[in-house]
Simulated scan of single mutants.
Amino acid sequence: MADREFIPVRIAVLTVSDSRTLAEDRSGQVLVDRLAEAGHELADRAILPDERADIADKLRAWIADPDVDVVISTGGTGLTGRDVTVEAHRDVYEKEIDAFGTVFTIVSMKKIGTSAVQSRATGGVAGGTYLFALPGSPGACKDAWDEILVHQLDYRHKPCNFVEIFPRLTENQRRK
């Protein structure tokens, strides 16, 4: 990894919860702490209730913000009626990163066994911004960050990573 210089990315963290406040947001804080430890920048942080339209609107606002490279949400990925984060993410995705959910499930299986089937973690891209929806538990956020995102958001990670293809995410929008 020494042959490449680290490139920090600007990450917004969204907690989806009907009941948490910033002071009680352990999962969001896990992500904030880990991204800072890795050398990245916290671009913004918010808490929203489980309302699909509001979540999608916030994602769109961050996608449009040139100071946000990545959005990570936590919460609302389960199976109950109020869990609408995945649907909100998919409302804004241009492309889904199908393997993200698969790899997250593999990581989760090692920790919580077959209970991993209850998570609908997802990832995608829109407007040149990466978006990831993680479960609302601090453990799930640690697992997703420590096992997947810390590597894929590090330009030095080989054989490939999300950072090195940032410039190409919007190539379809360039003039020919």
Results as ranks from 00 to 15, higher is better:
F162M: 14
R45C: 02
Q152F: 07
T129N: 04
A12L: 04
L42T: 03
R82F: 02
F100V: 03
V163C: 07
E5T: 14
A99T: 12
I11L: 09
V117A: 14
A133E: 03
T85H: 03
K58L: 10
W62R: 09
I47G: 03
V117F: 15
L14C: 01
A88K: 06
R10A: 10
I55W: 06
L79G: 08
A46K: 05
S27N: 03
R60S: 12
I112K: 04
T74R: 05
Q152M: 11
A116C: 15
S73Q: 04
R156S: 12
L42S: 01
R82S: 07
Q173R: 15
E87W: 00
I11T: 12
F100E: 04
D143F: 01
A23G: 04
A46Q: 03
L42Q: 05
V117L: 15
D65S: 12
R10E: 01
F166C: 09
G127R: 07
E94A: 14
P8S: 12
T85P: 05
F100K: 07
Q152D: 13
C160M: 09
E24I: 14
V117W: 09
F100R: 06
G39K: 08
F100G: 03
E37F: 00
H157S: 13
V117R: 13
A133C: 11
I112G: 06
A116G: 08
V70T: 12
D25Y: 05
D69Y: 02
V70G: 09
V16N: 05
D25V: 14
R174C: 11
G28P: 01
Y130I: 15
K111Y: 00
T15F: 00
V32A: 09
D146S: 11
R174E: 10
R10I: 06
G39Y: 01
R52V: 05
A88D: 02
D65F: 01
A2W: 04
D33T: 15
T122W: 00
R156T: 04
P167D: 01
K110F: 00
A88Q: 05
A88T: 05
I47S: 04
V84R: 10
T105A: 15
L134E: 09
L42C: 02
V70A: 09
K176Q: 09
K158H: 13
T114D: 10
S119C: 13
V150N: 07
G113K: 07
K110N: 03
I165V: 15
A64Q: 08
V13L: 06
D54Y: 01
L14V: 05
P8A: 13
V13D: 00
R34Y: 03
E24A: 15
A99Q: 06
Q29I: 03
S108D: 05
V163D: 01
D44L: 07
A2N: 12
M109Y: 13
T15C: 09
E37L: 10
R174H: 09
W145S: 08
P167Q: 10
V30S: 02
P167G: 14
D83C: 13
Y130F: 14
G136E: 01
N161V: 00
L79N: 06
D67A: 14
W62K: 10
G39N: 06
F162S: 06
